[in-house]
């Protein structure tokens, strides 16, 4: 029996944790109990970066989380967090499943010892939630919006004129409550689960980016498995994906309905205008952050 410790930073009720547990059952079934995935949610085995390095140190065998964390190794992985990079959810998922992403993943496995087995578990489109209404591009000017403390995000919001305020996620709720920031952005189901609608009454459905969750494994561990065991891992994760993504879509719909019920104003943006604004700065962003030119050109070619 091979034990694989799988770490997640999300709480036990999070869809990624539930899906990983399902995956564990499926893997046990497919391998006749040869592989036992032990799931550790809620950052019990460390935060994202600890788990990424932990896969090489042997503190952990697998990590399930947003693929954008991999930007710590290779800046190109940050690119999929860019605002309005993708036309819609299907476009985003297709890119993650596609050839050029596979190349990035192969490079990662060879150079950094981490293999991304599967990367098509949707995280849902991210939206704004704010203490003052945000509807047009002009509303974005000077908007104090929380961004992850990461260069690509900060540049992405500063270029179109927002006052991007880098802040750890753990401080964001208080920051929004006390007015240090006026807005933050996450998927609607996440915002509802974390009660952000109780302190900020405007949800703007910007649908500004689509990240994917990746199922990652230490390359050394992966190499030690038999072909059947490797296939079982991939097959199980792939089998869960449609169910996972359906659940995310349902959760988002429910979350938005409940927020509306609880007095949140839900706004929609003129998506074409927002898209144009952010796509116009993509070249400058790419140069500043340092994405590979080939990748940038390929992504731009996919824009409608």
């Amino acid at each position: 029996e091979t034990v694989l410790k799988v770490g997640l930073i999300d709480p036990p009720a999070h869809i990624d944790v539930v899906a990983t547990e399902r995956m564990a059952e499926k893997v046990a079934e497919l391998t006749g109990g040869e592989i036992k995935m032990e799931v550790y949610p809620a950052a019990q085995l460390g935060f994202a970066n600890d788990m990424l390095s932990g896969m090489k140190l042997g503190t952990i065998e697998m990590f399930v989380g947003a693929t954008t964390w991999l930007g710590a190794f290779d800046t190109d992985f940050w690119v999929t967090g860019t605002l309005y990079l993708f036309n819609d959810q299907d476009h985003a998922r297709a890119f993650h499943e596609g050839e050029s992403y596979q190349k990035m993943a192969d490079r990662l496995a060879a150079e950094h010892g981490i293999r991304v087995l599967v990367r098509n578990w949707d995280r849902g489109p991210r939206n704004f939630i704010s203490t003052r209404p945000v509807e047009t591009i002009d509303d974005l000017q000077g908007l104090k919006i929380r961004v992850p403390p990461q260069e690509s995000w900060i540049v992405n919001f500063q270029l179109p004129g927002a006052a991007a305020t880098p802040m750890p996620l753990s401080e964001t709720f208080t920051g929004l409550q006390q007015g240090i920031v006026e807005a933050t952005e996450q998927a609607s189901n996440w915002l509802y689960a974390n009660k952000y609608h109780t302190i900020a009454k405007n949800l703007t459905r910007t649908n500004h980016n689509y990240e994917e969750t990746g199922v990652m494994i230490s390359e050394a561990v992966y190499q030690s498995l038999t072909d059947e065991q490797r296939d079982a891992l991939v097959a199980a994760a792939m089998e869960i994906a449609p169910w996972h993504n359906e659940q995310v879509a349902v959760q988002i719909e429910e979350a938005e309905a409940k927020m509306a019920e609880e007095g949140v104003t839900i706004l929609d943006v003129d998506k074409a205008a927002w898209q144009e604004q952010f796509r116009a700065i993509f070249d400058e962003l790419s140069t500043k952050v340092g994405y590979s030119p080939d990748l940038v050109e390929e992504l731009k070619a996919g824009w409608n």
Partner: peptide
């Protein structure tokens, strides 16, 4: 001592300094 070489080429997200 063991961690340092492993995180040598991981960048911190804002400063881009090595972890």
């Amino acid at each position: 001592w063991k961690i340092i070489p492993v995180v040598e080429n991981m960048q911190r997200p804002a400063t881009r300094l090595s972890t």
